Computed example of a mutant assay.
Amino acid sequence: MWADDRMLSLLGMSLPILQAPMAGAGDHRLAVAVADAGGLGSVPCAMLTPDRIKTEVAAFRAATDRPLNLNFFCHETPVIDAAGLAAWQQRLAPYYRELALDPATPAPLSNRAPFDATLCALVEDLRPEVVSFHFGLPAPDLLDRVKATGARVLASATTVAEALWLDGRGCDAIIAQGVEAGGHRGMFLTRDVATQIGTLSLVPQIVDAVRCPVIAAGGIADGRGIAAAFMLGAAAVQIGTAYLFCPEATISPPHRKALAEGHVRETALTNVFTGRPARGMVNRLMREQGIMSDVAPAFPLAGGAVAPLRAATEPAGSGDFMPLWSGQSAGLCRAASAAELTRRLAADAQALLAR
Score class of each variant (00 low, 15 high):
residue 2 W to E: 13
residue 2 W to T: 11
residue 4 D to P: 14
residue 5 D to L: 04
residue 9 S to Y: 02
residue 22 M to F: 00
residue 22 M to G: 11
residue 28 H to M: 05
residue 28 H to P: 06
residue 29 R to G: 06
residue 34 V to H: 04
residue 35 A to T: 12
residue 37 A to D: 10
residue 42 S to I: 06
residue 45 C to D: 09
residue 46 A to N: 11
residue 47 M to N: 11
residue 48 L to A: 10
residue 51 D to Q: 15
residue 52 R to C: 05
residue 57 V to W: 02
residue 63 A to D: 04
residue 64 T to W: 00
residue 65 D to Q: 13
residue 66 R to V: 06
residue 70 L to V: 02
residue 70 L to S: 06
residue 76 E to M: 04
residue 77 T to L: 07
residue 81 D to L: 04
residue 94 P to G: 13
residue 99 L to N: 09
residue 103 P to V: 00
residue 104 A to D: 14
residue 106 P to C: 10
residue 107 A to I: 05
residue 108 P to A: 08
residue 108 P to R: 12
residue 109 L to K: 13
residue 109 L to M: 14
residue 119 L to D: 01
residue 121 A to T: 06
residue 122 L to F: 01
residue 126 L to R: 13
residue 128 P to E: 11
residue 128 P to S: 06
residue 129 E to V: 12
residue 135 F to P: 05
residue 140 P to H: 09
residue 141 D to V: 08
residue 145 R to M: 04
residue 146 V to I: 15
residue 147 K to Q: 13
residue 148 A to H: 02
residue 149 T to K: 12
residue 151 A to N: 06
residue 153 V to T: 09
residue 159 T to A: 11
residue 159 T to F: 00
residue 160 V to P: 13
residue 162 E to Y: 10
residue 162 E to G: 12
residue 164 L to V: 15
residue 165 W to R: 00
residue 173 A to F: 15
residue 173 A to R: 10
residue 176 A to R: 02
residue 185 R to S: 13
residue 191 R to I: 04
residue 193 V to H: 06
residue 193 V to P: 00
residue 194 A to D: 14
residue 201 S to E: 03
residue 202 L to R: 05
residue 206 I to Y: 07
residue 211 R to K: 14
residue 211 R to I: 03
residue 218 G to P: 08
residue 223 G to R: 08
residue 224 R to I: 07
residue 224 R to C: 08
residue 224 R to S: 10
residue 225 G to N: 07
residue 228 A to E: 07
residue 233 G to T: 10
residue 239 I to W: 11
residue 243 Y to L: 13
residue 244 L to N: 06
residue 246 C to N: 07
residue 249 A to V: 03
residue 259 L to S: 05
residue 263 H to Q: 12
residue 264 V to F: 02
residue 266 E to R: 14
residue 269 L to C: 01
residue 273 F to V: 09
residue 277 P to F: 00
residue 282 V to S: 09
residue 283 N to A: 02
residue 285 L to W: 00
residue 285 L to R: 06
residue 308 P to H: 07
residue 309 L to P: 04
residue 315 P to V: 01
residue 316 A to R: 14
residue 323 P to S: 10
residue 331 G to T: 10
residue 332 L to W: 05
residue 336 A to R: 10
residue 340 E to Q: 14
residue 341 L to R: 03
residue 341 L to V: 11
residue 344 R to G: 03
residue 344 R to A: 11
residue 347 A to H: 12
residue 350 Q to I: 02
residue 351 A to H: 15
residue 352 L to Y: 01
residue 353 L to E: 08
residue 355 R to H: 09
residue 355 R to K: 15
